[in-house]
Design a protein around this nucleic acid. Structure first.
Lengths: 150, 150
DNA sequence: GCATAATAGTTGATTTTGTAACTAACAAGA
DNA sequence: TCTTGTTAGTTACAAAATCAACTATTATGC
């Protein structure tokens, strides 16, 4: 592992490249939470996201979730199907527009959501404690802006 | 899209949940760069990462790259194979330890790396301009810590 | 009303990833 | 030296993501 000949390496540092760094941070900070929803609840990433959207915002359509979570409709379609099989959500046709399905958690889904929400809240608090509260607030603001959420 | 009955929603906001937010920011801020290495160079995410590691740090082994980039060896194995087919890198057996392969970019690989590095640098600068330089420095520090890079 | 286009969501084929088992080479201890 | 264990990397198979094509329904323009 020697240094490259080509040393007009002017001012580029991979370890500080934001897209790389953001990915590393996202993966690193998701690992533990992933073990919870995956190993303990048998859910996929898209599945907990759908569950959390319905738990947080109440009844939504697949399209609503896709917009908010920036998830492709095929991913959502399959996640909804799995959550339905597990009886965590139910669908109902919108009678105004029969293309649309209104999605809502069942009581069982609500229960799972409540459990996971508690774990998520604790986990978030643990991550936040790595910094001062001002720093964490600034971090969230910056991430929202990078995500195009405002 | 109505509010959930269950409104003991005490202090949990999905949009501010760090693992979610980090993922959204990572995806959002990778999109444009992805279009470059994917559409213009036909590379996968793991492939540009391997390319950048070799370009930035010079000759390395697959294991070295795996440690630095937190990539699983199977991913690296496949990325190395593809980069080799494109003649962007060459392998050579380490004669001290014949299990090990030393990986290095070919001149063609160096050229592609140099091009992409320039694009990456500009892109990073564009992202950084969304904030003050102090904020950006703080952001990088926090992300490194969340990624377990220090 | 009718043709055309747009939208919600699903399905199937292909690509990519993840997991486990594998080969080959080295290491360490009896 | 001979086991046993570890490490570097590959391969095969299963799981998941992506992309395109599809159905069904509603919207738009003439």
């Amino acid at each position: 592992m020697t240094l490259p000949e080509n040393s007009e390496n002017d001012a580029f540092d991979l370890q500080n490249f934001l897209p790389f760094l953001l990915n590393q941070a996202a993966e690193g900070s998701s690992l533990e939470f992933q073990r919870v929803y995956k190993d303990r609840y048998g859910m996929l990433r898209t599945e907990w996201r759908v569950l959390f959207h319905l738990g947080s915002y109440g009844e939504m359509t697949a399209r609503d979730i896709g917009r908010r979570a920036k998830l492709h409709k095929t991913k959502i379609s399959r996640a909804v199907h799995k959550l339905e099989l597990r009886r965590y959500l139910k669908r109902s046709r919108d009678e105004k527009d029969r293309r649309v399905e209104r999605l809502a958690l069942t009581p069982a889904g609500q229960t799972v959501y409540n459990e996971l929400r508690g774990i998520a809240r604790d986990y978030d608090a643990r991550l936040a404690r790595k910094f001062t509260s001002g720093e964490t607030a600034l971090l969230r603001m910056m991430l929202r802006r990078l995500a195009g959420m405002d």
